[in-house]
């Protein structure tokens, strides 16, 4: 049985803390380029909620993308309604390194 105190202890971790368990060899060049001018036209912005690594965030009302924590799933490329995402895999063995998946 889950006790009352344990119910209180339950908590949603921050995405940073979850991602912190993963391993990357981050490339010095981004493998994904986002055309922010298209993001400004986009009201929907499904990337913000659907990129599982939260590489897309809203900062000061604008989309900000950072490639470093990318898990290379391809979601943003597929869902971007504005075709703003130029998407490649990282070169030279860089990027995410899954071990237990």
């Amino acid at each position: 049985m889950t006790t009352e105190t344990e119910v209180k202890k339950r908590k949603i971790s921050r995405i940073e803390d979850i991602l912190n368990n993963d391993v990357w060899d981050v490339d010095y060049e981004p493998h994904i380029i986002v055309d922010y001018s298209k993001c400004r036209e986009c009201e929907w912005k499904p990337c913000i909620r659907l990129c599982p690594a939260e590489c897309y965030t809203m900062v000061g009302g604008e989309v900000l993308f950072s490639y470093e924590g990318c898990l290379e799933c391809g979601t943003c490329r597929v869902i971007c309604p504005e075709k703003a995402v130029k998407w490649e895999y990282p070169k030279s063995g860089r990027g995410i390194h899954f071990r237990f998946s």
Binding site: E6, L71, G74, F98
Partner: peptide, 13 residues
Amino acid sequence: FKDGRIMEYSTHL
């Protein structure tokens, strides 16, 4: 899961 720790977080299409 209460005694576990997350080892890896991953995603795929």
